[in-house]
Design a protein around this nucleic acid. Structure first.
Lengths: 173, 173
DNA sequence: CTGAAGTTTCAGAACTTACTGAAACACATG
DNA sequence: CATGTGTTTCAGTAAGTTCTGAAACTTCAG
């Protein structure tokens, strides 16, 4: 294989591989995390074949994960005129990545949890004594906490990066 | 099987089962999430056998996941005098749960990522042109963002619940 | 319409992770 | 030191997830 890689590409390969491992801990599939890392550090949009080649994965796998990343709004499809191929480009702005991921996680992970908690609270709203009442209260506490968190999160992700920074600095200062 | 469950226990079973499913999305294993849900809604500390019985799982499985939860500081071991059994009790205070999880996730997920980013940035600090420089910059941006996030997070989790609430209200208001 | 280039789908294989059940271990008690 | 009670470990198995490769499909140019 080619050892003629520029120095930065060596670092990039480490980054891609390790980001993949970290991804699994975050509940994200390894390949998807690797493709994301690859695209985030790509000077140019890449096509499916380039991704396959770089990561040594099959077309089906590359395809699925690229589309998943597009579904997460972390990657967008670029088409060049006079070229039928689709190219993929990752958002590189850290603040925008953060906002996108926050929104998706809210939708996929927090909102279903809140629905569950409300449902369980509703089912037990007539419990006024003993363990039944405690359970009801626990559901309400969890709901209240998550809902409040969502509200705070919504405020933050609606902010411009600069305002968010300023606000955070005030908290720290 | 007994259909003589109090109404609230029905809701509890739904909560436990669903919290388990939600857990998998969060990258947490189903059983661990279920045990946590069970203990969070238990009026009394439970022993291994009770957990096995309630969730219909093996001793080994119950044991491993209980110990993992203790490792996460979400559950503590209680021993009653004159009884050699270990009982397990989950933290029920929502704010404390939040703080505990935040700390653990920081340690397990954010800090390793920051280490990786710094390593990759260091490897490319001499790159001053073209894609190498861009890569270096991207690593630094990500590092800076996560590190700043950690700082903000540290500040928040060092706050009392009431102060945090007050502070968040100001953000919203 | 035909063929070339690109894209999508999906059944089964490979891999990873979680779980069981049973045996080994620890420890207190008579 | 034998016995009963509770705890831990772990090899093998089951379940779940991800990946491959090939076939089907779409689109466009000639």
């Amino acid at each position: 294989m080619s050892d003629e890689l520029p120095a930065w590409e060596k670092a990039r390969e480490e980054f891609v591989a390790q980001w993949g491992s970290l991804g699994t801990q975050w509940g994200i599939n390894r390949t998807m995390a690797m493709i994301h890392a690859l695209l985030m550090t790509s000077p140019e949009p890449m096509c499916t074949d380039e991704v396959m080649e770089k990561l040594q994965i099959s077309r089906g796998n590359a395809h699925t994960n690229l589309k998943d990343l597009v579904g997460w709004n972390l990657v967008r499809i670029i088409t060049k005129k006079g070229d039928r191929k689709e190219y993929f480009e990752a958002e590189k702005d850290v603040w925008k990545i953060f906002i996108t991921i926050s929104k998706e996680r809210k939708r996929r992970e927090i909102e279903p949890a809140i629905r569950l908690l409300r449902d369980c609270a509703a089912q037990t709203k007539d419990e006024t004594t003993g363990p039944g009442r405690d359970f009801h209260q626990q559901m309400k506490d969890l709901d209240e906490f998550l809902s409040f968190g969502v509200k705070v999160g919504d405020t933050v992700i609606s902010m411009k990066h600069a305002s968010a920074l300023q606000w955070a600095m005030r908290l720290l200062g």
